[in-house]
């Protein structure tokens, strides 16, 4: 029996109420949501395969995000211009995230059943190493080629670096304006291609292996599937997708907040996925897309709604982070309980 998941309805309702009080124009919100779809989709897609493979929400997608930031910084440091720079950032990001994905996957094979808490802490460890490289390493033991990137003390990358050389190269491609709604068709096609790619992967024998490992790891192992390898593959795909997602995200924003841009990318992506009706056992592309629309509509309108209702915009901001954390907490608690009840029945 498929149970009705009230999450999308709940988010829709909240968004509508907040939208009503925010006094924002529908056109503005729509354009904002479109931007968010482009910025966040790939990060949310990155969560789908690990969920399918039974590893839960992959909070370590922030490692992929940091790989993307590293990619951008490398290109800025080497001053590679234009589309070559974008490609270079993507390729070096993919390379780093592939290796990280492999390492994370191998580690997660040693902590089966507790992957989610592990990925959270892997995220913290990754952030530490990342800061060590860029805040301490650059200019000291890593030679910097572009001194404009460095802090005035001569060691460490600045807090914020401009992506000016790469701005608007791809995200204004094929831009269509329909009565005020801006549709960047090229970026949409990238999102669509990523969605299709995830979908197609799930339709191959590899997808079948992910699903089998996610449904019952022991049974999958007994039927001849190397579940350890399957899970590593899932993490590699996830991390690489997250990296690509962050490349797009930063390119769209036009600058890199070197030490904060990755923060919360995991929490907001997970919350968006759950808002779309996914669980920690089952996630699909449509959950991701619906979730991004719902979660970000709410995200966009809450500060203004808070301002208008309580004359305090900060309340809206706190409210939306509570919604993000709260929806993950509730999804976890409900899901773990279901799992336990199911196990009880099977025995």
């Amino acid at each position: 029996m498929r149970k009705f998941n009230p999450a999308p309805l709940f988010f829709a309702l909240l968004s509508i109420i907040a939208f009503y009080y925010s006094d924002m124009s529908l056109l503005f919100v729509t354009n904002e949501v479109i931007i968010r779809i482009i910025r966040d989709s790939l990060l949310v897609f990155a969560l789908i395969i690990p969920v399918t493979a039974g590893m839960g929400l992959n909070f370590s997608i922030i490692i992929g995000a940091m790989a993307a930031q590293a990619g951008w910084i490398f290109m800025l440091d080497l001053q590679v211009p234009g589309i070559r720079g974008i490609a270079g950032a993507a390729l070096s990001g993919i390379f780093i995230s592939f290796i990280c994905g492999y390492i994370i996957g191998s580690y997660l094979n040693r902590v089966k059943g507790r992957e989610m808490i592990a990925t959270i802490i892997i995220g913290i460890l990754g952030a530490g190493i990342y800061q060590f490289i860029f805040l301490v390493g650059y200019g000291t033991f890593i030679p910097a080629h572009n001194s404009e990137l460095l802090l005035s003390r001569g060691a460490g990358i600045r807090d914020m670096v401009d992506l000016a050389p790469y701005r608007n190269i791809i995200d204004r491609l094929w831009l269509v304006d329909i009565s005020g709604i801006q549709l960047p068709l090229f970026m949409f096609s990238i999102v669509a291609a990523a969605a299709l790619a995830v979908k197609l992967i799930l339709l191959t024998p590899a997808g079948q292996r992910f699903r089998a490992a996610g449904s019952d790891r022991v049974a999958a192992e007994l039927s001849g599937i190397n579940t350890d390898r399957t899970r590593i593959q899932a993490m590699i795909i996830s991390t690489v997708l997250a990296c690509l997602g962050q490349i797009i995200f930063l390119q769209n924003i036009g600058m890199v907040n070197v030490y904060t841009a990755h923060m919360n990318s995991d929490i907001f992506s997970c919350a968006a996925l759950l808002a779309g009706g996914a669980t920690i056992k089952e996630a699909k592309i449509r959950h991701a897309l619906l979730g991004i629309v719902l979660f970000h509509s709410l995200y966009i309108v809450t500060p203004q709604a808070g301002q208008n209702i309580f004359s305090n915009a900060v309340l809206g901001e706190y409210f939306r982070s509570f919604i993000a954390y709260g929806s993950i907490a509730i999804a976890l608690i409900i899901n773990i309980r279901h799992e336990r009840e199911k196990q009880g029945r099977l025995q």
Partner: peptide, 17 residues
């Protein structure tokens, strides 16, 4: 007690919330 065996992750997000 209801999330026995998976306390860590549930506790983390309860705390965050």
């Amino acid at each position: 007690n209801r999330v026995k065996g998976r306390e860590e992750i549930a506790a983390t997000f309860t705390g965050f919330s």
